[in-house]
Simulated scan of single mutants.
Amino acid sequence: MGPALLFVHGIGGARDPRAECAAWLAALAVGVRKADGQGDSSAAALNGLAEPAFAYYADLFAARQPLGAAGIDPADTEELRNLLDELIEVRLELGPDPRERRILEHARAELRPPHPGRNADEPVRRIVSVCTTLLALPGLRRAGQWAGGRLMAGHLAQVTRYLGRSERDATGLTVDRRIRERVLERLDAARPTVVVAHSLGSVVAMEALHHHPGPVPLFVTLGSPIGMRAVVRPRLLPQPPAVPGCVERWLNFWDRDDIVVPRPRLEDDVLPNGLGCRPVTERIDSDGLWAHTATKYLARGSVAGPVAQALRGAVETGGA
């Protein structure tokens, strides 16, 4: 039995899992071609190396009826404010150009707590306003990933909703557990699996892999928020955060233009596992447009090359 390839998506709205899997596979094929410089690196060839699968969970976030503006529960606003505050502060530490600095400082000022006595929707509206301001950043403005601050705020809130671990369905299961189960359902303990996870999906996959008994020769994280020390890292399970025992190699990639990745060096925040594996972080540079998409990362030779190498290695060893 040959190896498997599992994709885990990040924040965002509803999508077609089959179409998304095909798009990720096509981008990976582009990256492999860049890395190899020879041979057949088409999506079909990658399909021949491993059986691809896509862990989809966006529908679980859509199931809750929104209680405030932008589909954000007012109870979530404090954690979302902390998330935005860390994104802005670390971005300022990177030394942006004067125009970007003005935008970031304006957004930071908007994050100040509202005056006492304001209505319940005020914190939510403030979050939306901050996101609207951040969309004026050149990379976000040109890319068109979000139509407005309302949509951006709602998607970023998925991070705090997952880590809040309090939303329950009719059976009492929390949304984070249901999301992890979607990942675990796609994993096969009988064969090695290369796992590629993006954005919030990197958090989901890392937690899920702690419950996976099968081998993972390579775990790849793209645009991961795991290193966010105010909102994400303290809420990861288990604590302290550590590499799952099944992971043999972990490569973490980040783009300087990716605003969702304020603290990229996971080596500083995740303990090694019993195999001695720890994250290895590498920076990539985009074309200056919106960098926080999985396909943007996967089309890079430095990202796709190790994925193909791990799959080929698993095939050569008979998938064992």
Rank of each mutant, 00 (worst) to 15 (best):
Y56N: 04
A53K: 11
D85G: 15
L289F: 03
P74G: 11
L25M: 10
R126N: 12
L218T: 00
N119F: 12
Q239A: 12
A75N: 13
H210Q: 02
S202V: 02
H9F: 12
G39C: 14
P116N: 09
P279E: 03
E167G: 15
F61K: 09
A53C: 14
L80E: 06
M228T: 00
T160Q: 13
L237E: 09
A320G: 14
A299I: 05
D169K: 03
A27T: 06
P66N: 13
L156C: 10
E100M: 11
G274D: 08
A35W: 02
L200Q: 04
T160K: 03
I11V: 11
D40Y: 03
R18S: 14
G117L: 10
G164C: 06
H212K: 00
V159H: 04
P17M: 08
V303E: 01
V231Q: 04
R182N: 08
C131I: 08
V231K: 04
E51T: 10
F253V: 00
A62V: 14
R64M: 12
G227M: 02
G68P: 10
V130W: 04
R118D: 14
D85L: 14
R118M: 14
H155V: 14
I127H: 06
E122I: 07
V128T: 08
L49M: 13
C246T: 02
N252I: 00
P17I: 13
L87R: 07
A242C: 11
G276E: 03
P306D: 03
P114V: 10
P114K: 07
R118A: 15
H198N: 04
T132L: 12
N82L: 12
A19M: 15
R300V: 03
R91Y: 09
V204Q: 05
I72R: 05
R177F: 12
Y297A: 02
G13A: 13
L46F: 05
P66D: 06
C277D: 05
T317E: 15
R229T: 12
G164F: 08
V194C: 04
K296D: 15
R18M: 11
A14L: 13
R81Q: 07
L5E: 14
H211G: 01
A19Q: 14
